[in-house]
Design a protein around this nucleic acid. Structure first.
Length: 95
DNA sequence: CGAATGACGTCTA
DNA sequence: GTAGACGCCATTC
């Protein structure tokens, strides 16, 4: 993965406003990536200083190891979850 | 150096 | 709601 794309992904994630969320697929498409999983990788490797909690899977249910903390952070921003699922239709960020 | 593996997903049936 | 296939790339063996 080249540096530019990596930075581009970081910029896009950083541009998601508080109180809104985006899917991995959204970020991948905007960054021109061929697969959404690369977004997840960028977050894992270099996402500690980004609002990673605003990035969710298309289903609205975060992966198990993140579920608790992510939903809690979102709730603090006003993004409410129904059980473990965030209502994507309502909070999804659209440029 | 080549092959196998893991990973914060998505789409279609 | 579940099940399977597809996909990319860094890391490890």
């Amino acid at each position: 993965m080249d540096e530019q794309t990596h930075e581009h992904v970081r910029e896009l994630i950083a541009s998601v406003p508080a109180g809104r969320v985006a899917t991995y697929g959204d970020i991948a498409a905007l960054a021109g990536l061929s697969t959404p999983r690369l977004v997840g990788r960028v977050l894992k490797e270099d996402g500690f200083d980004l609002p990673w909690h605003r990035i969710l899977p298309a289903t609205g249910v975060p992966a198990a190891h993140l579920r608790t903390e992510q939903l809690e952070r979102l709730r603090a921003e006003g993004v409410l979850a129904e059980g473990s699922r965030v209502d994507m239709r309502r909070y999804r960020w659209q440029p």
